[in-house]
Simulated scan of single mutants.
Amino acid sequence: MDRRGVARAAIRLGKGQRLFATGRTLDRVYAIRAGSFKSVLRCADGRQQVLGFHVSGDMVGLDGFAAQLYLCDVVAMEASEACEIDARALESAAREHSMLRRRIQSLIAQSMLRAQHNLLVLGSMQGAERLAHFLLDMSERYQVLGLSSREFALRMTRKDIGSYLGLYSETVSRLFTRLEHAGLIQVTRRHRVQIIDRIGLAALLSSSAGH
């Protein structure tokens, strides 16, 4: 792909820097190589809604392929690195190579399913269940990367988690404390969470589904 001019040099961003902004013409998509990002929707009234979190191995920008526009802001949550991929060259290569085309379609479908599932979570679960679901989801994503699924970093703020889950940041902090006191998790140090009782966390989701 590099020889075809699809992949470009990696770019490095500091915490708080934007990878791309809402409404700009989509000329590149990005493969995250290190660090983590959040996708943010800027509302007309000035509020910001966190739509998702992205870690190493994820691709961002694909959701705007059809419109040829970036549909949200993507912002680094820590020192991060992403590889630029020329959107037109990628589209051209996908037309020629069926495996690449299927891979892109799969990534877009996964992104849509994650968004739809999050709407289901917000609509059917209480606060503790939402947080438990979020922690288990992040655990599974780190496991796919070959990292520990039991202890991992959460670089997003409590406010970001609250925005994503439809909760106040103060509520998120109280729920972390509640899950910790219940022996389900342990906040080991800043930004790190250890899952102590995975079965117990999953049981919260089961009880919610039974209501």
Rank of each mutant, 00 (worst) to 15 (best):
G57P: 13
G57L: 12
M59F: 11
M59I: 12
M59Y: 10
G61W: 13
D63E: 15
D63Y: 14
G64Y: 10
F65G: 02
A66M: 11
A66R: 12
A66G: 03
A66C: 07
A66L: 11
A67P: 06
Q68S: 10
L69V: 08
L69T: 08
L69G: 05
L69R: 09
L69P: 08
L71P: 03
L71Q: 04
C72V: 15
C72E: 15
D73N: 13
V75T: 06
V75E: 13
M77Q: 05
M77W: 06
A82R: 01
C83K: 09
E84M: 15
E84D: 14
I85V: 13
I85C: 11
I85E: 04
D86F: 06
D86I: 03
A89T: 09
A89I: 03
L90I: 02
L90Y: 03
L90T: 03
A93S: 11
A94C: 05
A94V: 03
R95G: 08
R95M: 11
R95S: 11
H97L: 10
H97C: 08
S98P: 02
S98C: 04
S98T: 10
S98L: 09
M99Q: 14
M99S: 14
M99P: 05
R101D: 10
R101K: 05
R101N: 06
R101Y: 06
R102N: 08
I104F: 14
S106Y: 08
S106T: 15
L107F: 02
I108A: 09
I108T: 12
I108R: 06
I108N: 06
A109W: 10
A109G: 15
Q110Y: 03
Q110R: 04
S111M: 06
S111H: 07
M112K: 14
M112Q: 14
M112G: 09
R114Q: 13
A115T: 15
A115S: 11
Q116H: 08
H117W: 09
L119C: 07
L119K: 06
L120S: 12
L120E: 08
V121Q: 04
V121I: 14
L122Y: 02
G123F: 01
G123E: 10
S124C: 02
S124Q: 12
M125S: 09
Q126G: 00
Q126S: 00
G127T: 07
A128P: 10
A128L: 02
A128K: 13
A128I: 01
E129C: 00
R130Y: 03
R130F: 00
L131E: 00
H133Y: 04
H133A: 00
F134V: 01
L135R: 00
